[in-house]
Write a protein that binds this DNA or RNA. Structure first.
Length: 427
RNA sequence: CGGGGUAUGGUGUAAUGGCAGCACGAAUCCUUUGGGAGGAUUUAGUCCCAGUUCAAGUCUGGGUACCCCGACCA
């Protein structure tokens, strides 16, 4: 992508909005744009990072057997009355009316819809288990929004729902889902802590949250430094400063954290209210046992930025970077331009889509400052200085030192050393 | 929903009740080209509705939007 035509206007100084670092950097780097409080547009840079997270999630969820669907946001009032959540969930529920005054909810979550959907297909234990997921926009009429993407009113969530014949089978899948979540957060460059929590309006059973320690977080957890056991303060049966109940060695500390994901054993709560039953081997009718598993993708994106930044800007983990390479041309000379163009097309041939700063009216300092701000993992510079030696300069974003690499050696260099992932957009 | 705060060009900020100014950005030209460079010229603004006043960005009332803190959530 040529930067001369790229839809991205960065700001030289921090915007006044908000005080979360991730919020400031995402606005300043022109990854997102605010339309209203808690409502954001994703611009090309931000959308590319978002898509990269989606890609990781799709891969990991499909590995454990999830199949992707796409459910509607517009959901008739009746199905919400069935589970009593039409009233229980207000205010989080956004309600709208059609022209005939028929009422709808804008989906804040999809237990009602998916349970009804699965009911159409499940009759026998032979039809189970099933795991369906979607990556879709959620609407939540929350009292308050904060930190840009940290908590928005409209946001994109991955929600997975699993359906089982019995609790044992749910338990098996539940553990697989924990593994998938750990893989997803690892690939995003985050070390997530699994923490015990309350099920809120979803279930009475205890649930697991995936938390990232951060001062920005709104959640409070008790955390054991020794074994990483953790519990949300709202359900903790132990005290701050007490001994860890798991390893019995570590001291528990109260820490702020960001809730990235939440997984629930729903049991038969929704299958019973919506009427999702199946016949077991003996011919007895039983409610389907359910689990649900959510990740807020915008919040995950913001958290990655919150954790991975320095005084100059964002430092994207390789798999999430909007572009794997930022190619920068410095100087107006025809020779420099020619070499930069060649490098740009070579990179494409090697399978790397780079962001190519081909702008003629920007100074070197401005280009470098902007490159650091938007934070691609690998910077390649072509200038008079480098072409004299038939080289380009390569610098990883998280290192200070750059190295010169011969242009005819570039492909080997990438194959052997950097292994930057191709982050082209999916069709 | 309760509490606190803010609202001035595209962005960030000034202006005792008395000519709305500065910086950045943008535009044109020249110089510059390895860390947001310099000069010249230009561009664009007081959230909305009332009120007080000779005079309102400034004071009063109402509205709206946004930010922050609490309860809720991914």
């Amino acid at each position: 992508m040529r930067q001369s035509h790229f839809f991205c206007k960065t700001l030289k100084t921090n915007p006044k909005e908000g005080d979360a670092i991730s919020h400031k950097l995402l606005l300043r780097g022109n990854f997102i744009s605010q339309l209203a409080s808690g409502v954001y547009s994703f611009l090309p840079l931000g959308l590319r990072a978002h898509r990269n997270i989606e890609k990781i999630i799709r891969e990991e969820i499909e590995k454990i057997g999830g199949q992707e669907v796409l459910l509607p946001s517009l959901q008739p009032k009746e199905i919400w009355l069935k589970t009593k959540r039409w009233d229980e969930m207000d205010p989080p529920l956004f309600r709208v009316k059609d022209r005939h005054s028929k009422e709808f909810a804008l989906g804040p979550t999809h237990e009602e819809v998916i349970t009804g959907l699965v009911k159409l297909a499940i009759q026998s234990y032979k039809d189970l288990p099933v795991a369906l997921y979607q990556i879709q926009t959620k609407f939540r009429n929350e009292m308050r929004f904060y930190g840009g993407l940290m908590r928005a009113r409209e946001f994109i969530m991955k929600d997975l729902y699993s359906f089982h014949a019995d609790k044992d089978d749910l338990e098996k899948f539940f553990n697989k889902a924990i593994g998938a979540y750990e893989a997803i957060f690892n690939r995003c460059g985050l070390k997530a802590i699994k923490s015990e929590a309350s099920g809120g309006i979803f279930t009475k059973e205890n649930t697991y949250e995936f938390q990232i320690l951060s001062e920005m977080g709104e959640d409070r957890i008790l955390f054991c430094e020794n074994c990483c056991w953790a519990s949300n303060l709202e359900v903790a049966e132990v005290k701050d400063g007490g001994k860890c109940p798991k390893c019995e060695k570590g001291k528990l500390e109260k820490r702020n954290s960001i809730e990235l994901g939440h997984i629930f054993r729903l049991g038969s709560k929704y299958s019973e209210t919506i009427g999702l039953y199946f016949k077991d081997k003996e011919g007895n009718e039983k409610p389907v046992i359910m689990g649900c598993y959510g990740i807020g993708i915008g919040r995950l994106l913001a958290t990655v930025v919150e954790i991975n930044n320095d005084e100059k800007g964002i430092v994207w983990p390789k798999e999430l970077a909007p572009f794997p390479i930022h190619l920068i041309q410095i100087g107006e000379g025809q020779d420099v331009k020619k070499v930069a163009e060649t490098v740009y097309s070579s990179l494409m041939e090697f399978g790397f889509e780079s962001l190519y700063d081909d702008r003629q009216d920007k100074t070197a300092g401005e280009k470098f400052a902007e490159a650091d701000l938007i934070g691609m993992p690998c910077r390649i510079v072509v200038s008079e200085r480098t072409i004299e030696k038939d080289c380009v300069e390569i610098k990883p974003r998280d290192e200070v030192k750059a190295e010169l690499v011969r242009i005819d050696y570039l492909q080997q260099f990438f194959n052997s050393k950097l292994k930057v992932q191709n982050s082209k957009l999916q069709p």
